[in-house]
Simulated scan of single mutants.
Amino acid sequence: MRAIRCNQYGPPESLTVENLPDLLPETGQVVIDVKAASVNFPDVLIIENKYQFKPPLPFTPGSEVAGIVRAVGAGVTQFVPGSRVVAFTGSGGFAE
Rank of each mutant, 00 (worst) to 15 (best):
R2K: 15
A3L: 01
A3T: 00
I4N: 00
R5F: 11
R5I: 13
C6N: 06
C6H: 13
N7F: 07
N7T: 06
E13S: 12
E13Y: 08
E13Q: 09
S14L: 10
L15Y: 06
T16Y: 00
N19D: 09
L24C: 04
T27I: 02
T27Y: 05
T27C: 02
G28S: 08
Q29M: 15
Q29E: 15
V31D: 13
V34K: 05
V34Y: 05
K35N: 05
K35G: 06
A37P: 02
A37T: 13
S38K: 01
F41P: 09
D43R: 03
V44L: 09
V44K: 08
E48A: 03
E48M: 06
E48R: 02
N49T: 09
K50L: 11
Y51G: 07
Y51L: 02
F53D: 07
K54W: 03
K54Q: 10
P55C: 02
P58F: 04
P58Q: 09
F59R: 11
T60R: 00
T60K: 02
P61Y: 05
P61D: 04
G62A: 02
G62C: 06
E64C: 04
A66F: 13
G67W: 03
G67A: 03
G67D: 06
I68P: 07
R70A: 12
R70L: 15
R70K: 15
A71V: 01
G73D: 10
A74D: 15
G75A: 02
G75L: 10
G75H: 13
V76K: 14
V76C: 03
V76M: 11
V76L: 07
T77R: 06
T77L: 14
Q78N: 14
F79K: 01
V80G: 12
P81K: 05
P81D: 13
P81G: 07
S83I: 00
S83Q: 14
R84E: 15
V86R: 14
V86G: 15
A87D: 13
A87G: 06
F88R: 12
A95D: 06
E96W: 04
